[in-house]
Amino acid sequence: MPQVRLAGLGDEAAPDLAGQIDAVAELGWNRLELRTIGGTPVAALDEDAFRRAAGHLERAGTAVAAVASKIGDWSRPVTGDFADDVRELEVLARRCAVLGAPLVRVMSYPHGGLDEPEWGRRVRARLRELARRAEDHGLVLAHENCAGWAGERADRMLDLVAGIGSPALRLLFDIGNGVAHGYPPLPMLREIVPHVVHVHVKDARAGARGQVVFVPPGEGEARVAECLDVLFRNGYGGVLSIEPHVKLQPHLRSGTGDREGFVACGRALERLLARPACAAGGRR
């Protein structure tokens, strides 16, 4: 197994950047994945706020593993204005260069009322253009198995990666999303694993009345340990980034960061990684 790097989506621990940095430091880690700071997405921060954030990260010695964008997510149907995505990518390209962040998280757009063929056609066209722009900036777009045309189907993810054919478009696998969206994660991962460049670690189980309850890694139905084994057996050497969803669930616009839950999920992941199957890999 290759060595693994550990990080977390900071706003799952605290809304403010100081709290996010402190949470990963409590775990003994030095990486964050940035989504929002003070409730504002990274791309929407004003220039002064972004400069302050970048300076704070540098002084703390905290690296940025990836930046989450709103490109193609649950809030932006494919019938919306593509200029919004282009503008956001241009802003993030500049900001990722400052932060040293190599990846931007994207999705593949809600359908906006279109039929499937037209939905897929527009998704491919948009992501092809965004990947071209990302490649020019030395960035990689990491498509998550979440909202959008390819969010729940491995064949469509592979269609995007192979059809667009750009090194700037790869896949982000969120282990817990399968439980939340109603499909088993392991079969999907086995199909897409060669193209996975980033991983979100969370776990969940079915609750009462069809609700999903998010729990620490290894305590739910996502088969986190088996997913990690598949990743490592296939040479995965990227970041494992915890996204606990214990309190904060951005897609539902509910909750706030929970440092205690964040740290508990980080410790649970460390215990999984300490299993004999993983122990040879260590951390870096």
Rank of each mutant, 00 (worst) to 15 (best):
A97E: 12
L172I: 07
C146G: 14
L92V: 02
G261E: 05
C278T: 07
Y236H: 09
A23R: 03
G112N: 01
K247T: 13
R126C: 13
P110H: 02
V213G: 11
L27Q: 06
A168Y: 00
A66K: 11
A154D: 07
R87A: 01
D85N: 10
H245N: 07
A277P: 03
R267Q: 13
N177D: 05
W29M: 10
E118Q: 13
L114A: 13
W74T: 09
I21E: 06
V24N: 08
Q211R: 15
D203S: 12
R284Q: 11
L273C: 15
D22W: 05
G257M: 06
D81K: 04
G112W: 06
R190C: 10
V91Q: 02
T36D: 04
G100D: 01
A208W: 01
A66P: 15
A225W: 09
E219G: 11
V161K: 02
A101Y: 02
G176N: 06
G55L: 11
W29F: 03
V4C: 14
V98P: 13
R51D: 14
G151N: 08
L158T: 11
E191D: 13
A208M: 03
G19L: 10
A93S: 12
R132Y: 01
D81T: 01
P41L: 02
G148L: 02
R153S: 14
R284K: 06
A54D: 07
P102K: 03
P276N: 05
G28Y: 04
D48V: 13
P117L: 11
A25I: 05
G182P: 15
F50K: 09
L130C: 10
F173H: 09
S69K: 07
P185M: 01
R76K: 11
P216I: 06
R205G: 10
E47N: 15
C265P: 07
Y236M: 04
L139E: 04
Y236G: 12
L169G: 14
G266L: 08
G282Y: 03
I21W: 00
L89E: 00
D22K: 13
G281V: 01
R31H: 15
H251I: 05
G220Y: 02
E152F: 02
